[in-house]
Design a protein around this nucleic acid. Structure first.
Lengths: 168, 168
DNA sequence: ACAAACTTTCATTATTTTTTGAAAGTTTAA
DNA sequence: TTAAACTTTCAAAAAATAATGAAAGTTTGT
């Protein structure tokens, strides 16, 4: 298999995975392409390599930059902008986790907190059941948050790896 | 606020969250509805409460059953089927993690393993870079898998909670 | 100031995903 | 065996999401 074929196959799979996790296919594909190459790529390069329109590349590249997964590069003597992906897999994971937390975990937590503060009218047992649900959910959200922090902080850490071993 | 309003608000938010994570809105809403009530509900009940078509409820309920989040109940003297959600938040989380792992983590891991076994033709440095990427990704996938196992096993466990405290 | 080189925007189009609902299928009780 | 009560299926419609590409905007060098 040529390296080109391997790349394409990787890009396809990564795109499908992104799609399943609510990340636009093109965004995931662009990210995958940048991951597979050491060279910095221009918008034109990306368009050509994975057959996307200029607008699409532009918009999704900006999003990747927002997520801190990609950086702009300026080449001496070149007018074009080039792009390069962070290649450290743990830092990639950290940025993705942070971003999704901000977008999804926090809004849910806010809703839970708000409902918890609200006095609910209705049959006593129903109110009780609902309040228990809210309590359980909040505990869960808080634990997930801690777990993600922990995973981020300790991913490369010896203590963490030993703990893993200890617990598996 | 009435308990009915609170429920609706919860169902809406849960539906939106599901949507962001690649789970059909209706499926998440049905799940949320079942979580908010102690009573077992029939298809008809669900259709009425969140305004969904019969087919939609039927299909998504089946999916919830596949995910082990919901169980069928038969009531004595009733011909209809009723449905009830698992109310234990940790067991819910476990089932979701297991299911998503099966659907997304494993296929990606398989792709990585396959590419790793393949002899790649191309410029030496490009091949090297790509192989490093594969190695890093595989390590990552394996660690994620371990982390999810750990989270599942230890969620209610005292040792785990103390560890969390220790590390935060 | 001009124009070439490049980037960004956004209304429109295309694609994908989800939902509908009526028809077909199944089960149960008499 | 029949028919009422209920469940399942799936082709078609609707809704949501993503992609296109041409035009507008910006920057840079002369």
């Amino acid at each position: 298999m040529t390296i080109q074929e391997a790349r394409l196959s990787f890009i396809q799979t990564w795109g499908a995975l992104g799609s399943a996790w609510g990340i636009p296919r093109s965004m995931a594909q662009i990210h995958a392409l940048l991951l597979t190459t050491h060279k910095d790529l221009s918008t034109e390069d990306v368009m050509q390599e994975i057959q996307l329109s200029r607008g699409n590349v532009n918009i999704n590249m900006r999003e990747l930059i927002n997520w801190n997964l990609v950086k702009k590069q300026h080449k001496l003597g070149e007018r074009k902008e080039f792009f390069t992906a962070d290649k450290n897999i743990w830092s990639i994971a950290q940025n993705i986790v942070t971003e999704r937390k901000r977008r999804e975990l926090i809004p849910v937590h806010d809703m839970i907190k708000e409902l918890k503060q609200t006095k609910l009218d209705g049959p006593k047992d129903e109110v009780k059941h609902f309040e228990t649900l809210l309590k359980d959910l909040e505990e869960f959200v808080v634990q997930m948050d801690k777990l993600s922090e922990m995973a981020i902080k300790l991913n490369k850490n010896v203590l963490f790896k030993n703990m893993m071993k200890m617990l598996s």
